[in-house]
Amino acid sequence: MSSDSSINEIIVESKDEIAKMERGGWFKKYYVWFLVPLLFFFVIGSVESFLILTKVPTYIFPLPSLIFKGFVEEFSRTILPHLWLTLQEVLIGYVIGATIGIIFGAIVDQSKLVEAIITPYVLILVTTPMVSLVPLLMLKFGFGIVTKVIAVSLAAGPVIMLNTVGGLRRTSQVRLELMKTLHASTWQTFIKVKFPSALPSISTGLIVGGIFSVITAVGAEFVGGSTGLGNRILYFSQLIQTPKIYACIFTLSLMGITIYMIIYKITTKLTSWRE
């Protein structure tokens, strides 16, 4: 009985210990969340004081405080609605591009001949800046969202497809032979072995494709139309309202980072089994 109680005491004690460690570890675990904003404010503060001291004119580089003011002024009037439009172009175009890219990648992987025929064209699509197609697309589809969605999916799709094909091709021989001994169908082999094997590579494609999407959407907005954050940058530059230009640029950066983080998190989660 006494030994039992002493064991219990030990357990209770160690529980306390663990709790203490967890409390102490809290700062260790989340210190990034303190340090990052701290550094951010330090950098902003330094830039602000440097600009005040050196008297750089506002139209060249506005004070961070002015940028923030411009951001707040334009937030609900300009930034939010146009961000939403840009975001729509990016997301719809990206999803279409990624879907087509992965499906085409899977089809191409089925035969060496198809790959040999299609790859040159895909390479042309990957290496041609899709922004340069936008004027042509506008002749056909007008200045609306359709043109930009097409441009974005053309920018994201090929790079995702190339990564899909590369990933599928690199499936290890043993795993394919294993499926062969089990008389697996093409579909079973694809869904149980090849696609998961290719996932790390597809993930890379998805991340790069996401970055391409944002670039292309903003580029397309520069070319024509009257909507989107890219277009607003042009608009404010014509009015020489530099702080608002910067406000738009930072919003775009924030959007890019958020998209990147989301894709990164999802793909990391999907490939958490990675050796």
């Binding site: 043993v174 795993r175 032979e177 294993l178 499926m179 001994t181 089990l182 008389h183 697996a184 079973q188 149980k192 072995v193 998961p196 996932l199 490939t271 089994w273 990675r274 050796e275």
Partner: peptide
């Protein structure tokens, strides 16, 4: 079908032990 144990590791890393063992059956 054949039961074939390969010399190299042929576990599928994206499946847990149960699903790896069941792979032959499910296929």
């Amino acid at each position: 079908v054949f039961s074939f144990v390969f010399q190299q590791d042929s576990c599928l890393p994206w499946m847990n032990v149960l699903n790896n063992v069941m792979l032959g059956l499910t296929v």
